[in-house]
Design a protein around this nucleic acid. Structure first.
Lengths: 175, 175
DNA sequence: AATATATTTCACTTATTACTGAAATAAAAA
DNA sequence: TTTTTATTTCAGTAATAAGTGAAATATATT
């Protein structure tokens, strides 16, 4: 496959953005390439298009699979693995949010709960520190319980909600 | 100031999490320390408590100020700068979201608009590529316009909304 | 102005992460 | 079973980012 200038720009931008999100450039570039590619691509093709080492692609595919962003598919009469990614922005977003929650928010919640418990049994614990830990803990709990409810809704309902925007505020009689 | 075991755990965890979010460990640790500290701290104290070089603290403070997370204050009769951070989880969250939007979403939106325009003037542009770029663009536009509306609301209203959760869905007659 | 203190800059070192290429392993075809 | 093809592992290298300490600059005090 030959990259069009548009594809190339997209891939390069995605690669740079990836680095800001703790995803390495190769991984993000491969994801971007698969987003643009009309067909699934095999590892060899990815190497060639992005000028990456075969081993790098192999590891990157594992990383992307770990995020649930890439699927391995097969082409009739071809032994090699081929890769595709979800093409819908909203679904992609949902997956990334879910993964980040699992990797970053959940451990933080666990840590805060632990600390909160420790502070409860400690008589000379600083009151302010206690307050702040609990403030953080309840904020995160509020957010995650909201998130858990929202993720049960179908995407179409979410879109309706988001588009309704602040008219909801009027319905609920606040603001 | 002497760190309690709770503070220490919190700071170390925050430091690790920072690295996953593209913030370096020192910066995140300093932020965590200021979150816990009852009083504003000067650079020297921060060095000593976290065992960091003076220059590292200097640069980290600049980084944190850039994010709008830290304020410089003064103590009567002391020439040195002292630093504090917002103590409220929700406000902190708001600031970080706003900054990340500015740094990551806005440039991506600009890029997508550019590509979308390019594809419009290109007669042999791949239809699918066009579709995906536009799908992404409209998703991000939807999200940012929603975000812009939400950020105008006072925090208390947001809390009400979040706590209402899916009961809103019933009000709006969906799901 | 001279001295003392506080802060920043910068060249350098150290640590971390990304990437490569060769070798090992796995899987299929002959 | 041997050969071919595909994939992964891994040790080493390259690139990047983080952190240090000395020197320079800035700011206040005497």
């Amino acid at each position: 496959m030959k990259l069009t200038p548009v594809m190339e720009k997209f891939i390069l931008h995605w690669g740079e953005m990836g680095t800001r999100w703790g995803v390495n450039r190769s991984v993000a570039q491969i994801h971007a390439l698969l987003l643009m590619s009309p067909q699934p691509l095999n590892a060899e093709e990815i190497c060639q298009i992005l000028s990456l080492a075969r081993s790098n692609v192999s590891n990157s595919m594992k990383e992307l699979s770990g995020w649930g962003l890439v699927k391995t598919v097969h082409v009739l009469g071809d032994r090699r693995d081929h890769f595709t990614t979800l093409k819908d922005a909203q679904e992609t977003f949902n997956i990334i949010v879910e993964e980040r929650k699992k990797r970053e928010i959940d451990p933080t919640l666990a840590m805060l709960k632990e600390l909160s418990a420790e502070l409860d049994t400690d008589k000379n614990a600083d009151k302010e520190v206690k307050e702040r830990i609990n403030n953080m803990l309840s904020f995160l709990e509020m957010m995650t319980s909201w998130y858990d409810k929202m993720k049960k809704l179908p995407n179409s309902t979410l879109v309706t909600l988001v588009k309704a925007g602040t008219t909801i505020v009027k319905l609920i009689g606040k603001g």
